[in-house]
Design a protein around this nucleic acid. Sequence first.
DNA 1: ACCCAGGTGGCCC
DNA 2: GGGCCACATGGG
Length: 221
Amino acid sequence: MDVDQLYEKAFSAFGPQDWWPAETPWEVVVGAILTQQTSWKNVEKAIANLKANGLVENDPLKLANAPLKTIQACVKCTGFYRQKAGRLKKTAAHFAENYARIGDFFKKPVAEARKELLSLDGIGPETADSVLLYAAGKPVFVIDAYTHRVCGRALGKKFGSYSEAQAFFEKAIPQDAEKYKEFHALIVELAKRHCKTRPICGGCPLEKGCAQFKASKKRGN
DNA sequence: ACCCAGGTGGCCC
DNA sequence: GGGCCACATGGG
C-alpha cells in the first residue's frame, strides 16, 4: 500500500475529520503546547479554564501578562503543568513583544517562521509544524508518534527520524495544506482505533479482515 | 497496579 | 546523531 492508497482508504473509512477546532490561530498555538503528551480531552478543559479567565483571545497579550499561578491552575489538568504554564507565558511574551498582531508572524516565510518557533522553549518539531499547518495554513506535514506507528504497519516503513518521515510525506503528497491537515488527522484517527503498542493484526489495519478495526467501529469511536 | 496520552529539553556517549 | 530521563495529571 502506498501513501495515496492509505489516504483514500482512511478517508473513505472515517470521512473528513474537521480537526483542530480552535476559534483563532493563537488558540491553535496554545492548544499545540498543551496537547503535548496529553489527550485532547484534557486540553479542551484547560482551554475552557483559560477562556473563563479571559486569557485566550486572538492575541497573546493576556497570557503574557497573566500571573503564572493562574495559568498553572488553568492548565493543571493537562499534566506537566508547571512546565506548560511557564512555556505558554514565555511564548505569549515572545509574540506580544515582537509583533503588533500575531497574524504578522503567520505571514512570514515558512522556513523563517519554523526556525523562530523552534527557538522557543517548549516548542519542538511537532509543535512547530502543527502551528505552521493548523494556525498559519502552511503546507507542512506534521509527524507524531502515531505517524511512525501507522506507517510502520500500513506502509511497511520505518523512519529513523522526524525529518526523514516528514521529507517522505512531503515528497509523496502534493504541497497542499488542506490535504496535509486532513491526512494527519486521519493518521491519528487510524492509530487510535487500533492496538496502541503492538503491531497490528499482521498487516494494514484497513483491510477487511482486521478484527480490531471492526471492534472499534462497533464501539463507535 | 499498571499503561498510555496529538512531546520537549537536558544530559550523556 | 541517538538513547535515556524527568516532567504530571487524568482515564482506561
